[in-house]
């Protein structure tokens, strides 16, 4: 097997390995199953968000409203379930969240695919519309008593064990949902016509239109899909946090986009891999949770993420530019 050194995936994987090695050197306790499960837990919600963002980036768009969709969905669903359907099982509650998220995503879809408005501006707008609507009309107070279904899901652990010091580690079952979302997205992107169309539109919208791809319909479906994933992620976030806080999640969008871009997806569209996205999420989670292990105070984490974005995307861009100049 040959390693392609110019790919973002390779770079990110190397940075992760270096980070892990340095962290293990400065704190031997870092390499433990407890750290691993903590990091995996941190990647559950972020991973679902990132998968959605990857699909939008591949299609040549950008979505910054997904955190507001997630917050809206988890808050409104928890409230509605408490009021009218506390008997609903956890899996139905998650599906309901995904459905509400898809409906909100459809609003983005209509504005972007139907009316042809620029995606960044539209989703900046809907970010504040969804958030403003929720905080004005739905409520502003935390819901600390979640419906029984969500509480049950919040307690659901995949594996648990005991650390040498007697404390308990556990891995939340939500990681299976994330794995399922990644598998489903892989299937859609690489094994269906729709997936090929998403890549084609991102590569060149005009060419895609000329070979007869229903560009608007595909774009619409992309935003619905991102909305559904965001709704699902919101439900899982609230279940795991055991509280639906309407002020959660919003503000996370740039970190998620950063993770996907670090993984090599192009903002211009047409290119991006799930492997890269997973690695990007892993790196961001590592920086957010474990920077302190390297002796860097956690107040520096957004500087670190910013630097990673600029270096991780600047280096390949610079190499490409140099190669183009040499060829010319």
């Amino acid at each position: 097997m040959t390693i392609d050194w110019t790919r973002n995936e390779t770079l990110v994987a190397l940075v992760i390995l270096a980070f892990g090695a340095l962290a293990a050197l400065s704190d031997p306790g870092f390499l433990s199953i407890a750290t691993l499960t903590d990091l995996l837990r941190g990647g559950i919600v972020l991973g679902i968000f990132a998968t959605g963002v990857l699909v939008v980036l591949i299609s040549g768009g950008i979505d910054v409203s997904f955190t507001a969709v997630a917050a809206f969905t988890m808050y409104a669903t928890a409230m509605v379930l408490n009021a009218v359907a506390p008997w609903m099982p956890w899996w139905a509650a998650l599906m309901l969240g995904a459905a509400l998220g898809a409906a909100l995503g459809a609003i983005n879809g209509v504005l972007i695919a139907g009316l042809g408005l620029p995606t960044l501006i539209v989703t900046l707008g809907t970010l504040s519309v969804f958030r403003g609507f929720m905080l004005t009309f739905v409520g502003q107070r935390q819901i600390t008593t979640l419906p029984p279904g969500m509480r049950e899901f919040g307690r659901m652990m995949l594996v648990r064990g005991e650390n040498p010091d007697g404390s308990i580690w556990s891995l939340h079952a939500g990681i299976l949902v994330t794995a399922g979302v990644i598998a489903l997205t892989w299937f859609i992107l690489h094994r269906t016509l729709l997936g090929r169309q998403v890549f084609a539109i991102g590569g060149s919208e005009e060419s895609a239109r000329r070979i007869g791809i229903p560009v608007r319909r595909v774009q619409f479906l992309v935003y619905v899909y991102v909305g559904a994933l965001a709704g699902l992620a919101g439900m899982i976030h609230a279940s795991m946090a055991r509280v639906a806080n309407p002020f959660d999640l919003v503000g996370l969008e740039l970190s998620v986009i950063a993770a996907v871009v670090l993984g090599g997806a192009r903002l211009a569209g047409g290119y991006g891999t799930l492997t890269g996205t997973v690695l990007g999420v892993a790196l961001i989670v590592l920086v957010r949770n474990s920077l302190i292990v390297l002796g860097i105070p956690s107040t520096w984490q957004s500087v670190a993420i910013g630097l990673l974005i600029l270096i991780g995307t600047g280096l390949p861009a610079w190499q490409a530019r140099r190669a183009a100049r040499r060829a010319a």
Partner: peptide
């Protein structure tokens, strides 16, 4: 470097805000 403006200013914005946080705690 030829970075798209969204990406460049997204990354640098995180750095500027991050420095502001780091300087003041």
């Amino acid at each position: 470097l030829g970075l798209p403006p969204i990406l460049a200013t997204l990354g640098s914005g995180l750095i500027f805000t991050g420095l502001a946080v780091a300087l003041t705690g």
